[in-house]
Write a protein that binds this DNA or RNA. Structure first.
Lengths: 152, 152
DNA sequence: AACAAATATTTTGCAAGCAATTTAATTGTT
DNA sequence: AACAATTAAATTGCTTGCAAAATATTTGTT
């Protein structure tokens, strides 16, 4: 039986609360993005993939997964939907036939212009000053990296 | 054509990055919780529901939804799984037949003891001091509430 | 060269999460 | 009392997200 009292429990419950804060904030962000992305025909994870591709085209699935912390079981069907929507093309690499490389179509590139309005809506909804926003982002990334390290 | 330059774009991109930080931290938290909750036979959202019930038993689905920011489309099947697992019972309220009230079974109450070990693992994985953790939590809750307000 | 180990992607199955619709019960209005 | 409006859950359909297994290719070893 561990030697622990009510104060310890309250303290420990904080980490539960931090996780819930992150969890519910992620859901709330989705609620703000949704109406903005609906017009583009994208979901939030699909938008993330497009952000990657707008930054660097012709990317293997694996790299997208590492950048977005998603595995191929999530990405394969998502990318097929983007392909079906005519935004990307998927083709086996000639050099390494195990890889599938993702390339933007003309429509995919064109979507970037329409997507430029999205961040403004998000920024406004956050209601944070730029330094506060920057600090919060950095703290979360640091936390995330520790969590990833802890779970392998 | 909006009058905006590269600096503005970089600034606005920050809100995108904050959202991604929250998103990927939520996924990372899940990765830490998963092995801890697997032993209890719970998923993270199920664990959240159990936390609510351990705090206050005999709760309408609606109240659980408000506390966890989840709607009935998510909760109904989740609660049915908890019921199938023998942890809760679902029964229509006598006073208001529209409501379904959720009550812990004996097994549901008993699970609380085994769940006490969970927060310790999370706290350790976070690697944050208690004040830092508290502040981060509060900032996220404030952000979440602003986001919820912005999306209705 | 033969073959084991590692790598990249796909597939399958399950549990969220949400929008939109449906059903049933309650409340409010005339 | 009759009837419209509201409310609480449940249902349907679609998109994540992950674990585990399957497939195919490449790399490493002997």
């Amino acid at each position: 039986m561990p030697n622990r009292n009510a104060d310890d429990d309250a303290l420990l419950a904080l980490s539960n609360q931090l996780c819930f804060a992150v969890y519910s904030t992620a859901l709330a962000f989705n609620g703000v993005y949704k109406p903005l992305l609906d017009g583009l025909g994208l979901t939030y994870p699909q938008y993330l993939v497009m952000l990657v591709l707008w930054e660097r085209d012709d990317v293997p699935v694996k790299d997208i997964g590492q950048l977005l912390h998603l595995d191929s079981g999530t990405l394969t069907p998502l990318l097929k939907r983007l392909e079906a929507a005519g935004l990307v093309s998927r083709q086996r690499s000639a050099r390494d036939e195990r890889q599938v490389r993702i390339t933007l179509t003309e429509a995919g590139r064109a979507l970037r212009e329409r997507a430029k309005a999205v961040p403004q809506g998000i920024f406004a909804a956050c209601g944070l000053s730029t330094p506060t926003l920057l600090k919060l982002k950095d703290e979360l990334i640091a936390l995330r990296d520790r969590l990833d390290a802890a779970s392998g």
